[in-house]
Design a protein around this nucleic acid. Structure first.
Lengths: 110, 110
DNA sequence: CCATAACAGCCCTATATAAGGCTGTTGAGC
DNA sequence: GCTCAACAGCCTTATATAGGGCTGTTATGG
């Protein structure tokens, strides 16, 4: 699946669809999920349409027992000994110096 | 990494930290990232402290070229031919019938 | 050591999500 | 086919995030 060819909105909706599919696979109702997470039914419904906050997502993932792959998603950056040596043991805390120019998103609808 | 033993807040913060590390690895400033995503500097800063919306996260991941692992994170549910046969070709659209009881979160601070 | 860009953290206002309720639709089980 | 729980969608109010600005701190390059 190549997400880069898809719009942000589409990805959000797809994420919502998958959360719903995950819930149904476990045969849990939206109401039950709301109660288990102490969130409102509306928040669960919104999340399954792709909207919502990070905190909502994480609470739901925990209840759906789907937090496991968070590590693959946004991996912890591990600095190899070689890299660390090259940086003389110094870990960068700010971006600086010459950088690639990122192109800003244009006006076209995403 | 066992996320289930960690609080939601901690996980959110950890996620923010990793996004920041990812950005620094690419030597991009928060301001550059804000411009590239057409988000505000404040939104980027908030995201890196673990707060924010799903839409913000996805926009940033796209710019950091980190959308790839979204699939592993919340995989598309693929129904095996055997399962599909067991369900007689019917895909469940609602939770129903007998279900496990989920325990609601108690008052203790997460 | 010095100058400065990168960043954290606060402010205020605009906007979107969260919560709670209510109505209409539909799929699952009988 | 019927019934009713599960769900979608809309409304209102409360709350959190987004946007923009400003100040103080500090990592980084010179």
């Amino acid at each position: 699946m190549d997400f880069y060819s898809l719009s942000d909105k589409y990805i959000e909706q797809e994420l919502g669809n998958r959360l719903k599919a995950l819930r149904l696979q476990k045969n849990i109702t939206q109401k039950e999920l709301a109660e288990a997470t102490t969130l409102s039914l509306n928040s669960i419904k919104s999340l399954e349409t792709g909207r919502g906050k990070l905190s909502t997502l994480i609470a739901v993932l925990r209840e759906l027992e789907a937090l496991d792959h968070l590590d693959d998603f946004i991996p912890e950056i591990t600095i190899s000994p070689m890299q660390l040596a090259k940086m003389q043991g110094h870990v960068r805390k700010r971006a600086s110096g010459e950088r690639l120019k990122l192109q800003a998103k244009d006006e076209s609808e995403w």
